[in-house]
Computed example of a mutant assay.
Amino acid sequence: MVFFLQLLKIMSTQNLTQKKLVNLDRIRVEPFLAFGNEKKIFVKGRVISSYKRKRPSSRKSWLKNIIATIKRYSVTSIPDALVEIHFHQHRFEVTTDEDGVFEKQIEVENPSPKSIEHVNFKVLSPVAKKNSTWVSKEVNRYNEPVGVISDIDDTVLISHSTQLGKKLWLSISKNAYTRRPLPGVSKFYHELTHRGEVPIFYVSSSDWSLYDLIRDFLRYRNIPIGPTLLKDKHINLKNVWKSGGGSHDHKLEKIRNIFSIYPKMKFFLIGDSGQHDPEIYAKIIQEFPSRVKAVFIRLVGELESDRKEKLAKIIALDNFFFIESSEEAIELAKKNHFI
Rank of each mutant, 00 (worst) to 15 (best):
I116N: 05
F35P: 01
Q18P: 08
K266D: 12
G45H: 09
H276R: 15
S204F: 05
A316M: 11
G100S: 06
E109N: 02
S132D: 06
I70A: 06
H250L: 05
L5F: 06
I200R: 03
E328T: 12
G246M: 05
P145Q: 12
E107F: 10
K310L: 12
S186H: 10
S171K: 09
R141T: 11
F35N: 04
I41T: 07
E287F: 04
I314C: 06
I70E: 02
S57H: 13
I330Y: 01
L218K: 00
K9F: 15
F322C: 08
D80R: 04
I285K: 15
K187H: 02
T76A: 12
W62N: 11
E197R: 09
K54L: 01
A294I: 15
I214H: 00
E331H: 15
G100P: 01
D212P: 03
N143F: 13
N319G: 07
P126D: 04
S58G: 08
S205L: 08
I106M: 04
T13N: 11
H90P: 07
M1C: 05
N110G: 01
N23L: 09
N336K: 14
R26T: 15
S243K: 04
Y51R: 09
R307H: 13
V148Q: 04
T17D: 11
R53S: 02
I149S: 03
L182E: 04
T155H: 10
N15Y: 12
R72C: 03
F35V: 05
K19L: 14
K64L: 13
